[in-house]
Design a protein around this nucleic acid. Structure first.
Lengths: 157, 157
DNA sequence: CTAACATAGGTGATGCATCATCTATTCCGC
DNA sequence: GCGGAATAGATGATGCATCACCTATGTTAG
């Protein structure tokens, strides 16, 4: 049992501020999205991922990987979105275990309507508050931490 | 209707990386906490807040404010924690609408057991991956964004 | 070829988070 | 004092996220 290295004041401040910012930011964005679009934040990111593809379709496991979601989460969420006619599922010919998720017209309409407001909110609350140096610093720091997380996952598996 | 100012490549990169980092980091910390402590992340932060007080007690609304939670969330969560004997509620004498949350012995035991591992994980996955400059930059950036969010809230209310 | 394993996806249970709404109490202006 | 507004907290419904587990299909070592 080694001694515990608690966080010092500077470390604690940065860590807590980041946590708090993330929580408040996500809550604010989700609220704004819900207020003017009938989409939740998860709905939004799914539709962004799908409409980034020229054919508006993706395998479920691709979606899971791209969004960093668990497979089961994708399954549940796509099921909910399907009942709202934002996406639909199609069986996959080449791999009969698999399925495609395809964005519907209604889904396209929803994301087209929602995106400008959401991007404006991201700017107003986050991007435009920070000067480019800070933004780069954050991007770089996040990349470093992500690389560490990836490394752990690979080590464990 | 003004033109939409979409995010440029640098902005998008920073924003996405931050989102992704936050998601993966919180998931990893929550999993680790759950694996060796029977506490969820929300349980953990509640117990930290309570044990920071000399008497281990707080009003529910204080807890809501300190954690940045909605009142209803606090109410539900404390109810769940009460059934597990991590905290208990006490009626407040001076304000008969109110109630205290008090950490129990079991709650103290749980947080004492969980904290070293959690702090070690925060170090391993986040704090120790970044040099002090980066950490400060993040703390500062988060503070700026938080100030903006506070400003909006005050303006709306 | 077949047995073992890996992968794609689905499902039910449970805990988490929010919303709308409710009651009880306190505060505050008149 | 009294009546309206604000505040403290609770509650039920609903959507979100994870876990443990399941089926079906594909892959590969022997």
């Amino acid at each position: 049992m080694d001694e515990v290295r608690w966080l010092d004041e500077r470390e604690e401040r940065a860590w807590r501020a980041l946590q708090f910012m993330q929580m408040r930011l996500e809550a604010a964005l989700a609220r704004e999205l819900a207020a003017d679009s009938d989409l939740s934040y998860p709905d939004y990111v799914v539709l962004v991922a799908l409409t980034d593809r020229p054919d508006g379709r993706m395998r479920l496991f691709e979606l899971a990987h791209e969004l960093g979601w668990e497979r089961s989460r994708v399954s549940h969420h796509i099921a909910r979105m399907t009942t709202r006619d934002l996406v639909r599922k199609e069986r996959c010919g080449s791999d009969r275990r698999g399925a495609y998720v395809v964005v519907t017209d209604r889904g396209r309409g929803a994301i087209t309507a929602a995106a400008p407001g959401h991007v404006a909110a991201v700017r107003r609350l986050f991007v435009d508050r920070l000067d480019p140096d800070m933004l780069d610093a954050i991007g770089e720091a996040a990349a470093v931490v992500l690389a560490g997380l990836d490394g752990e996952d690979r080590a464990v598996v």
